[in-house]
């Protein structure tokens, strides 16, 4: 029996002119590292790194649930809204959280759509950050599925979403963590995974911005798993090559949710990434 060092709290942010009650958790002390979860899931994807003393010894890891995800409830009036995330709304949320928590030049670590936003912020707001760890991240790739599958009255979108994204998990992942990772997708609220994917699979605005990323000021390190069918190593390599000075690591035995699906396999790659942010 042991109590973990992770603590969770709430903060209210003004986003799009409306208050949003945001759940965040943190562990460790030192340089702040803000962690962004993937589409259709929540901050628990970071649970292992936040319990890893080799990570938290010198870093304060902070992970939050995006609005509509995990413990961050939708805003008032959501019952008649179609949830559709945008690049702009995601950026607004990240910057508002940094302001509210008074974080001084955090490292930004994001996975999948979080990695996409990390690269967007590297291009648009680099002065707010110390560096960027973009995991399973690329400039853009269109959907290889129909996002409308995941929001239907005649089927459980969460179960379908989990069954689909299992395609992105490595067979080397321990079974317990595979199923923990999939459970988060099964928990996802109606239409949320679809709403995340709508921008992720349609907004290609990052492609034209990659060249303006200045890695001499803020390093960019991209990490990708070989078993990732959504953001493949080819997608990540193409993206890294378009950012002068960006570095790339390919993980042979991991997939699209490395920090969650296979924490032991991922930790050396994450520690290496943190070193590159110095």
């Amino acid at each position: 029996m042991s109590i973990e060092p992770i603590t969770g709290r709430y903060v209210t942010l003004q986003l799009g002119g409306r208050p949003h009650r945001i759940y965040f958790e943190e562990a460790g002390s030192g340089r702040p590292v803000l962690c962004l979860h993937t589409a259709g899931a929540h901050s628990a994807q970071w649970r292992h790194l936040m319990n890893d003393a080799d990570v938290t010894g010198g870093h304060r890891l902070i992970a939050f649930d995006m609005p509509w995800h995990g413990k961050s409830l939708p805003p008032e009036g959501s019952e008649t809204e179609e949830y559709l995330l945008t690049t702009e709304a995601y950026i607004e949320t990240v910057l508002a959280l940094i302001d509210a928590l008074e974080l001084e030049a955090p490292v930004l670590a994001g996975c999948s759509m979080g990695g996409r936003i990390a690269l967007q912020l590297a291009a648009l707001h680099p002065e707010r950050f110390a560096g960027f760890i973009a995991i399973e991240a690329s400039d853009f790739q269109p959907a290889w599925y129909d996002i409308d599958w995941f929001h239907r009255p005649d089927a459980h979108g969460g179960e379908m979403g989990a069954a689909l994204v299992s395609a992105n998990i490595s067979p080397h992942a321990p079974a317990a963590e595979r199923w923990n990772t999939l459970w988060m997708f099964m928990q996802s609220g109606p239409g949320v995974f679809r709403g995340d994917l709508s921008f992720y699979t349609q907004d290609d605005s990052l492609i034209g911005r990659l060249g303006q990323i200045d890695t001499a000021r803020t390093p960019v390190h991209i990490i990708v798993g070989a078993y990732d069918l959504t953001c493949t190593p080819e997608d990540a390599r193409r993206t890294a090559e378009a950012i002068p000075g960006a570095t790339l690591a390919v993980m042979d035995e991991l997939g699209h949710f490395p920090m969650s699906e296979h924490p032991e396999g991922f930790r050396p790659f994450f520690l290496e990434a943190l070193d590159k942010m110095r």
């Binding site: 290889w144 299992s166 395609a167 490595s170 067979p171």
Partner: peptide, 10 residues
């Protein structure tokens, strides 16, 4: 332990 790409029908 299928190699990448062969690990799932998709």
């Amino acid at each position: 332990l299928p190699e990448p790409g062969f690990h799932d029908i998709f």
